[in-house]
Every structure is written in C-alpha cells, then in structure tokens.
Nucleic acid binder design. Structure first.
Lengths: 227, 227
DNA sequence: ACGCGACTCGTACGGCGTGCGAGTCATCCT
DNA sequence: AGGATGACTCGCACGCCGTACGAGTCGCGT
C-alpha cells in the first residue's frame, strides 16, 4: 500500500506482438533506467543524479520513471548492485592457491568500486543486493578451502569485507583532493611537534594506494591463515 | 573570493565589554552552531539536518548562520571533527602492552563513531580534521613502539584505519535494519544452492558485532606484528 | 463497442541551500 | 560631535529538488 505498486515491476517484453516503436527512443524499462543512472553517476557523481536529469537523458517525462522504480533510493540500490556484478574467471579454477584467489576476488571488488567511485560512498547505507552476496559466498568458499575453521569463517569474511570497504572508501574520497593532500601534509609539517610520527612517515603524501592495499591485505591474510 | 569570507571566522569573544544580551539566547557562534548540529544529527540522522531547522533550534534567522560557517558542507565537516575528538587516558601509559594500547585506541574510535552513527557514513567524503590526525599520530607512535619497521608504518596505519572504517561503517548501516537482516537470511535459505556457504555460517544473522570486531582486529594485528 | 490494464506525463506542492542587499549597533577616527 | 567602518543579523527570492495526483494514450480480450 505504501507505493502505488510494490516491488516486482519488470513484466518487460511479455508484450506479445512487437509494438512498432516510432523510431526515437526504445521503450522505458528498468534496465534502461539503471544503465542510464550509472552513466550519469559515473559522469557527474552522486549529486549529479536527479530524477529530472535522468528523465532527460532517457527522453521521457520525469514521472514516467516512477512506473518502473519506486523512488530515487530504489535507483541508487539498483545502480549499485548493477555495478558490483562479479565477472570472475569463467572456469572455476578451484586451484590450491587459495591465497591468490582471495586476493584476486578482493582486488577485483575494489577495482569495480573504484571505477565507479560513487559506489564506495553509496554502499554503506544500502542493503545487500544479490551481486554482493555472490561475492561474499565466493569469499566464504575460498576461506573454507584455505582451512579457516568454521567458527572463524564469519569473522574472517567480515574482516576482509571491512578491510576492502575501508580501503576503497578511503581511496575514493582522497582521490579527489590531490593538492589538498599536499596542503594537509604541509599543515602537518608546520605543527610537527603534535604530529611528529605521521609527518616523518609522510603518511599523507604516500600515494601508492594499490601497493598499500596489497601490503595490508597481506598482513591480514597472514593473520587469518598463518603458515 | 569564492565565499563572502574565506576560512578564519571565530573572532569570538574578543568583544571588549560585555554586550548586555537581553536574556533569550546566547549569541550565535561557531561552537554553538556545531553543538546544535551534532544534537540534530544524533536525533534525526543525516537528513534531519537542514539549515532551516538548525536556525530554528538556535533561535536565529537562517541566513545568520552563514556569517559563521561557509556552507552546509562546512557544518558537516565541523560536526564530524567535533565528534571525533579523542579523550584518551590522560597520563600517557607508555606501557609495553602496545597491543592492548592499539586495541584501545581503535575500539574507542569505533565507539565514538557508533555513538553518532551518522558520522560513519559522513566520514568517507570529508577531509581529515585535526582530531582525526591526532588519532592517526597516536596510532603511528604505538605501532612504532611495537616494532613495526619504518617502511611498513604507513601500510600498517592505513590497514588499521581501513579495518576500523569498514567495520564501523558496516555496523552502523546494518544496525538500522534488524529484521531486514532476518529477511535477507531467509532469502539466502531459499536460494541455498547459490549461497550455500554463507547460508550455513549464518553470516547475516550473527550479531556479535563487538566480538567480530575484536576477533578480526586480532587477526590483523597478528599479521602486522607477529610474535 | 467497451472496459481494462499497462504505461506516460504535466502540474503542483512543499522543502531545500544560499545569493543578495538592507538593517542594527558598537567601535574608532577625525 | 559626526561620520565611517566593520561585525553581525535576517527577510526575500531564486532555482532546484523528490514525488503525489490524476488525466491521458493505446493495444488487447471480450
């Protein structure tokens, strides 16, 4: 009763005969809306997505969107899950190199999110879509094969999830402000008595994000499955 | 030139003689604005903070706020940093239990953010305020004392930061949806062939967040400073 | 012929952040 | 004393937002 219509739209294409579309635009559909939303988000960031702009890009009226989606929140959810689809190696390698496999899963995850940088700051407040769950499942399987005790599996999964989320979100948000970071480091230097250690290590200037990600992930995996 | 006035407001209280305030409200000030913003955020969440509401609670006109802050973004920044102030143990323990110390720093950090749950989803897109830097400095010192090599210090700091951020953000966002999680787990069960592993481990039902946080942190520290 | 469901969309409402410029009042300079 | 200055407050108005509502179109089953 809340919305005009509950959840399951998408009776797409059950249209029996081809309805001759004039020429201009293909018909509106959930998929087309989501795809366009992702484009817009990629191009303009989170604030760049408005229902009006979305409708413009689709060549439709604003309110038509609401037949296919429940709300703008809904659009965010769909766009996020769409972007996080996992195209893993097609033939399950099932190798014994569980560590390499886990690293691969997580690096791919991070890469997916970083190539749509809005997704990092979006994910925290959204539900887990099916594509996210698939990734978690994959991770769980790999950990299990790696010999992590059943009792530790959940903690292990969450640890890795936490690490990846934190790293990705941090990376995505620092990315934007390149000379801000230089400025910040300078501020540190000026106050070097208060921030001696991180000033010395040049924490804010270090920009080998990928290396740092791998290194930290290595530490974590060392702890998770020693030997 | 961008804003009417750059950064350094805050010539507060340099007023020579007490200007006799009538009785009603104390004068507007950056501090009062930030404090009220935090109250509002705590009570109503991120969307609950609007400039109009903020002004109402302060008993002032909306536009008066803009004398003291640059923009709503500015208010967010200030509120975030205010909430993340570290009130550590007053007498630096300087103990040899570096591990306990690190755990304490990070648990306190997490607790600070969780007690203002909006902060978790806000932090990703903001600059590092002085209070955040202080915490990083503390962490760096402790790691250094723990014997982490200079070359690894940055990676270690970021690893712990990532872990804490990820864990906190995840916790804060899952918190809100308690039976959503039950529903999600049920969905898993229905599709148990696709999600066998995480269904079996009851990943989505496990709600010992604090325990999982400590456990995962333990893993990471094991990897960071073995022995 | 007619109703019905799927779908589209114009209008309108209430709320938002904030630019602008006018108003108040204590202080300082002459 | 008189005027200028600067700190601060605030009402108005603009353009944008998400979306409730209800009217309109069109192909189909009867």
């Amino acid at each position: 009763m809340a919305a005009k219509r509950g959840g399951a739209r998408s009776n797409r294409s059950q249209r029996p005969g081809q309805p001759p579309r004039p020429a201009g635009e293909p018909p509106l559909s959930r998929q087309r809306i989501v795809a366009t939303a992702v484009e817009l988000l990629d191009a303009q960031g989170i604030d760049g997505l408005t229902m009006r702009r979305l409708a413009d890009h689709l060549g439709s009226g604003v309110m038509s969107l609401y037949w296919h989606v429940d709300s703008k929140e809904d659009v965010f959810d769909l766009a996020l899950d769409a972007v996080l689809e996992y195209r893993g190696s097609p033939q399950e390698p099932q190798s014994e190199d569980w560590r390499g496999e886990i690293v691969h899963i997580l690096e791919d995850w991070r890469a997916s999110m970083l190539s749509h940088s809005w997704s990092a700051s979006l994910l925290p407040r959204r539900a887990l879509g099916p594509n996210i769950l698939s990734r978690l499942e994959l991770l769980g399987k790999a950990l299990s094969r790696a010999g992590v005790a059943d009792a530790d599996i959940n903690a292990a999964i969450w640890s890795l999830w936490n690490y990846v989320m934190g790293a990705t979100i941090t990376r995505a948000s620092f990315d934007l402000s390149d000379d801000d970071r230089a400025a910040a480091q300078q501020r540190l230097t000026r106050l070097s008595e208060r921030y001696a250690t991180i000033e010395r290590s040049r924490l804010l200037l270090d920009d080998d994000w990928d290396g740092a990600f791998r290194k930290g992930l290595g530490f974590l995996l060392d702890g998770l499955a020693p030997g």
